[in-house]
């Protein structure tokens, strides 16, 4: 028996919003420790890794490990049926071929359940090695979304350069070029408004702006985004999911031919 109850169904809606551009379907691996999802986008350029810890749920029970392959389009339709203030519970029997979503209004006057068929998906689990990154940048998630949106008007690629002074985002294309420099915040009153750089060595890498833009669909999950970079390894774009977990996007850099 698997059962996970979350008072804020909006978290699940936001998680889905954050992955459904990149993935058509995904396997939710449920165990005693929580719910994990790892999947490559269809073009194998980026990897999505999500973790929701069991202790972050209001109720969590998982007697046996269960992998639930879900069509994210169908899941989106079902979650649209939940009001933001509803309490959501996901339930499945061991070896089940369906999952049930139960939505309860805060006053318990309306209770709905939706059963969704599960899919058998080929699992391509990749090992993500522990990496010491040369640069780790934290900045307001809304600012990062704005930068990705603005720069994607110029070209297909965004160059991210990180030095101890700050971080620069650049793009160039047919209409011209654009550079956005963010300096490290000197006085930090509110952490969520700060730009911070932890740097071992300067790094400059080039990424596809289309993917960076897709990652920013997670912006509503967190005030802060963390970018981790090292030469010749994938960028990690990380958003915390409240006190319950995180979503990380790995994007391979572009290389010169």
């Amino acid at each position: 028996m698997f059962e996970a109850r979350l008072v804020q169904s909006s978290i699940l809606k936001k998680v889905l919003e954050a992955i459904k551009d990149l993935l058509n379907e995904a396997t939710f691996d449920c165990s005693d420790s929580g719910i994990q999802l790892q999947a490559m986008d269809n073009s194998h350029v980026s990897l999505v890794s999500m973790n929701l810890r069991s202790d972050g749920f209001d109720k969590y029970r998982c007697d046996r490990n269960i992998s639930m392959g879900m069509n994210l389009g169908s899941m989106t339709k079902i979650l649209k049926c939940a009001a933001n203030e509803d309490v959501v519970t996901m339930k499945a029997q061991d070896n089940a071929d369906t999952v049930t979503f139960v939505f309860e209004s805060p006053n318990q006057e309306k209770v709905s359940d939706y059963e969704m068929k599960l899919m058998n998906l080929d699992q391509e689990h990749l090992g993500i090695p522990e990496t010491e990154y040369a640069c780790v940048v934290r900045l307001p998630a809304g600012e990062f979304a704005r930068i990705c949106r603005d720069l994607s008007q110029f070209g297909e690629s965004v160059v991210i350069s990180c030095t101890k002074e700050g971080v620069k985002f650049s793009s160039a294309g047919d209409i011209g070029s654009a550079n956005i420099k963010l300096a490290q915040t000197s006085n930090v009153d509110k952490e969520e408004l700060a730009v911070t750089v932890e740097m071992q060595e300067p790094v400059t890498l080039t990424f596809a702006s289309r993917y960076l833009n897709s990652f920013t669909k997670a912006t509503s999950l967190s005030n802060v985004v963390q970018l981790s970079m090292s030469p010749d390894v994938p960028l990690v774009v990380e958003y915390r999911i409240g006190e319950i977990g995180h979503i990380r996007y790995y994007l391979a850099p572009k290389i010169e031919d």
Binding site: A208, Y250, A252
Partner: peptide, 14 residues
């Protein structure tokens, strides 16, 4: 500009 790597080239299959 540039070629896009396949993410599998970086990460190890479990």
């Amino acid at each position: 500009p540039g070629r896009q790597f396949d993410i599998q080239e970086y990460f190890l299959e479990d």
